[in-house]
Design a protein around this nucleic acid. Structure first.
Length: 566
RNA sequence: UACCCCGUGGUGUAAUUGGCAACACAUCUGGUUUUGGUCCAGACGUUUCAGGUUCGAGUCCUGGCGGGGUAACCA
């Protein structure tokens, strides 16, 4: 459209640069294949969204494929509930994995064969040390480990033992299969890591077929190799595992040579991201389930009203590097505001209503006011709102006394009711407790439709709801934690003490009649208040329930706060 | 403490083979506006430190300082 269409292509992040180098050198025959490998032991959160967008995005950008692979090697922690929710979340974000979902458990037979291959090469042995003894033999940061007394068993002996492990002849913990690498290595991962452990546990996919299960390290790289993954992108904490990842690829007859590259995971202020901590919040009842709109799970964010586009744009703007950083939550909020500003229909709702009686408006009469549905989108059209002698306005939009800066309703001053008339407050009615129960105002009939025939400027504009308003249950969400870094607590203090007691406030609001018919999942902007989403679980046409996704940017609140501080 | 990784404005991400440090968000100031929203314009400010190589260092080398990761039969 514009003449400066020659927009500079976005600079490459270090992963894109790496892939382009590989493409240029013909490393994988010009092929790019990535994977997203979640363990099905919990719900996906916004941190996973980063990994998802990086892996799927890289495949999309370079004409490759991205697999969805469940890393299901620990049957005691995993469940189909999670494999279902993970697929739903990935699809919700708008990504499509290549073919069917894969499972590491599909490769158990091959992995087992590779374990025997290692034994035959005298690179693995069955060790009878128990867990505690194994830890003791591993040594410490400053002292090398000591060899297991079982390290020199012959390949024949090991093979027989390993087959008996598989056959279920041994109890859990009695022995394990270990790689024979180097107990003196400065990298703990290379000090004879455990490859297989005995678990007499039922697996959600393989049932009771196995009683030995491979460890992550023995599974991940080989699974990548089986699937022809070219770029195995994972988070920074696997950096020290890379030498082991490569050791298996070198010593086993694998079909391809994937390469692992690490990037920094996402941290956000005012929230926690670890699965363990999220689980604690859910199980302790601090929040109402994995899809509570206050937790950063994708299902929670979806319920809160976040859009896939907002999440993807967010991930796009934060970039990716190898530096551990923390993104300010407002960046996420801006991303959803930016998307919803363009797409959400405007409606009027009064969250904390106070009655206004327009004394010079003819009793018993009413009219219809036309309102724009979305000033950012002409095609959204207009709607009609009833207007009469009584309306609701926001309690905070009235003050008995206020400075000039307060551009709202004050006795003797004039404001415009959005899309309707200008009113002037004449009288304040209070109850015995001194609470304001009613404001008596007069309107200027000449000020319909934004007009002021005498040309006077009325700067204040406030939203309102008609007497025919419907009651809306509205859930006002705030940050889950009071502190930007909730996990940073002094010794002995529980991080949950940082929980914000006011993270959820439920109120009844007055909304324009059209809001009664909201369908679950509908997103709207309540003018001047924020973006809201009809709750996907509890909202019903006729009995709407709205979750606040995010407030609008509030410049006035900022001014007041600053002036109060000064 | 041992090993590995990382240090660029308030925050996050860029900077071709070494060549005038850029973009976004935040903040501040103005403008537009029937949302104190949106949008537009401007301002603000930076290479962790000390040496070295070089005509020239954010980039290369050495050392210090600071931050993170790892020490599960979890992933």
């Amino acid at each position: 459209m514009s003449e400066h269409e020659t927009e500079e292509p976005r600079r490459l992040n270090f992963l894109e640069a790496l892939v382009e180098e590989d493409l240029a050198s013909g490393r994988d025959g010009g092929r790019v294949c990535t994977r997203f490998p979640p363990e099905p032991n919990g719900y996906l959160h916004i941190g996973h969204a980063k990994a998802i967008c990086i892996n799927f995005g890289m495949a999309e950008k370079y004409g490759g494929a991205c697999n969805l692979r469940f890393d299901d090697t620990n049957p005691t922690k995993e469940d189909v509930e999670y494999v279902d929710s993970i697929q739903e979340d990935v699809r919700w974000l708008g990504w499509q994995w290549d073919g069917e979902p894969r499972y590491a458990s599909d490769y158990f037979e091959q992995l087992y064969a590779w374990a025997e291959e290692l034994i035959e090469k005298d690179l693995a042995y069955v060790c009878d040390l128990n867990q505690e003894e194994t830890r003791e033999h591993r040594g410490t940061a400053t002292t090398p480990g000591t060899n297991s007394p079982y390290r020199d068993r012959t390949p024949e002996e090991n093979l027989a033992l390993f087959r008996r492990m598989r056959a279920g002849e041994f109890p859990e913990g009695s022995c394990s299969l270990k790689a024979k690498i180097d107990m003196a290595s400065p990298n703990f991962n290379m000090r004879d890591p455990v490859l297989y452990r005995i678990m007499h546990a039922h697996h959600h996919r393989t049932g009771d077929a196995w009683c030995i299960y491979p460890m992550y390290d023995f599974t991940h790289g080989q699974s990548d190799a089986i699937e022809g993954i070219t770029h195995s992108l994972c988070s920074l904490e696997f950096e020290n595992h890379r030498p082991l990842y490569e050791w298996f690829l070198e010593n086993l007859s694998v079909p391809s040579q994937p390469r692992q590259t690490e990037f920094a995971r996402l941290n956000l202020t005012y929230t926690v991201m670890s699965k363990r901590k999220l689980r604690e919040l859910v199980e302790s009842g601090a929040v109402n389930g994995w899809d509570d709109p206050r937790v950063p799970t994708l299902s929670g964010m979806r319920r809160r009203g976040y859009t896939p586009a907002a999440v993807r744009n967010f991930i796009d703007t934060i970039g990716v590097a190898r530096f551990n950083s923390t993104i300010d939550l407002v960046v996420l909020e801006n991303a959803v505001r930016d998307d919803l500003n363009k797409t959400a229909a405007r409606r009027m709702a009064v969250l904390d209503p106070v009655k206004v009686v327009i004394t010079n408006y003819p009793e018993g009469e009413s009219e219809l006011i036309e309102a724009v549905n979305n000033p950012e989108d002409d095609s959204a059209g207009t709607r009609q709102i009833p207007f009469g002698r009584e309306v609701w306005i926001e309690r905070e939009d009235f003050r008995e006394e206020a400075s000039r800066k307060f551009r709202r309703l004050v006795p003797g001053r004039e404001v415009r009711l959005r899309y309707a008339y200008c009113i002037t407050c004449d009288e304040v009615i209070k109850n015995a407790d001194g609470d304001i129960t009613e404001l008596r105002c007069t309107y200027d009939p000449e000020t319909a439709n934004g007009q002021t025939p005498d040309g006077r400027k009325v700067k204040g504009i406030i939203h309102w709801a008609p007497a025919e308003a419907v009651d809306l249950e509205v859930r006002l969400y705030d940050n889950l934690f009071k502190d930007p870094d909730p996990e940073d607590v002094p010794e002995g203090v529980d991080w949950r003490e940082n929980l914000n007691p006011d993270s959820l406030q439920t109120i009844t609001a007055k909304g324009e009649p059209a809001l009664a018919d909201a369908a679950p999942g509908d997103r709207v902007q309540f003018e001047r208040k924020g973006y809201f989403c009809a709750d996907s679980g509890d909202s019903k046409p006729g009995a709407p329930v709205f979750n606040r996704t995010v407030t609008l940017r509030d410049t006035w609140a900022k001014i007041e706060k600053r002036d109060a501080g000064a």
